[in-house]
């Protein structure tokens, strides 16, 4: 009897760990990567490095607040420090699953708030190799997902997930993601173009535990075809600070509160 029970357990155990669906992996990853905490803050420094090695810098404070569950609405507030010609600009995004974002930009020299058209979330974020989607996420339902293997990457056991966009309006044909089985953070992503050639690679270089949330604090997106790459570092990361709803309004877009942007 005991022998059968052990056998049954032995059969069930690996089955249970294997039984995770690709959708669950992606959902867990979305929760760990883009939705941790009720709110989030980071000072973001992006180094845009051209093929010849010249560097442009973008520096901003990014604040995020979740509304609802993982995959639900989010609001983002960004304040720019660099480059000099966008200093003091602020940018606000209301992100909704399943439809276009609402975006507002504040231009301090004219003391003017402008709404910005936002149809293409595959657009570059502030000229970098990251897209808006890389910053704030992509609807999971827009792709079909498939676990194509399990691999060790830098000592971490990973699921390898292939995501193929259902619509043909993306700049890539499919993406491979290496998801850490423990944290569900993406450690590497490979984007393949329409001809099936590898053209963009995302790598997570450093992961830190911040208030119990594993957080990628150094990441790079490299465009293999243009040779351009963007290195992003997060500092001053914090979670669950209790950001008020009122921050995400025109009032504070025009007068960003110091306690949040510093």
């Amino acid at each position: 009897m005991l022998r059968y029970l052990v056998l049954l357990l032995a059969i069930l155990m690996p089955l249970k760990s294997l039984a995770i669906t690709p959708e669950e992996v992606m959902k867990n990853s979305q929760a760990a990567f883009l939705y941790p905490g009720r709110d989030f803050k980071a000072r973001v420094v992006m180094r845009l490095i051209s093929k010849s090695g010249s560097v442009r810098t973008r520096e901003l404070t990014m604040l995020r607040k979740n509304y609802g569950e993982t995959g639900g609405d989010q609001k983002y507030f960004m304040y720019f420090f660099q480059p000099a010609d966008v200093k003091d600009m602020t940018f606000m995004v209301y992100k909704y699953p399943g439809r276009d974002d609402d975006r507002w930009l504040f231009i301090p020299a004219l003391n003017m708030v402008r709404r910005i058209a936002a149809q293409d979330s595959r657009s570059s974020f502030v000229g970098s190799d990251f897209t808006y989607e890389d910053v704030s996420g992509r609807d999971l339902a827009d792709d079909s997902h498939e676990i194509v293997g399990e691999e060790k990457l830098g000592g971490a056991d990973c699921f390898v997930v292939k995501s193929t966009p259902k619509a043909g309006d993306t700049d890539y044909s499919h993406k491979l993601s290496w998801m850490d089985k423990k944290t569900f953070l993406p450690l590497k992503e490979e984007y393949f173009d329409k001809r099936g050639d590898l053209y963009k690679v995302f790598t997570a270089e450093e992961i830190k535990d911040v208030n119990g949330f594993p957080t990628i604090v150094k990441r790079t997106m490299k465009n293999l075809q243009s040779g351009h790459s963007t290195e992003t570092a997060f500092t001053k990361v914090d979670y669950n600070m209790g950001i008020e709803d009122s921050l995400f309004t025109e009032r504070y877009l025009k007068q960003p509160p110091r306690k949040w942007i510093e």
């Binding site: 709404r115 058209a117 936002a118 293409d120 657009s123």
Partner: peptide
């Protein structure tokens, strides 16, 4: 009316 036609072109 404002629209982004292709990436970075509005």
């Amino acid at each position: 009316y404002q629209r982004q036609v292709i990436e970075d072109f509005s």
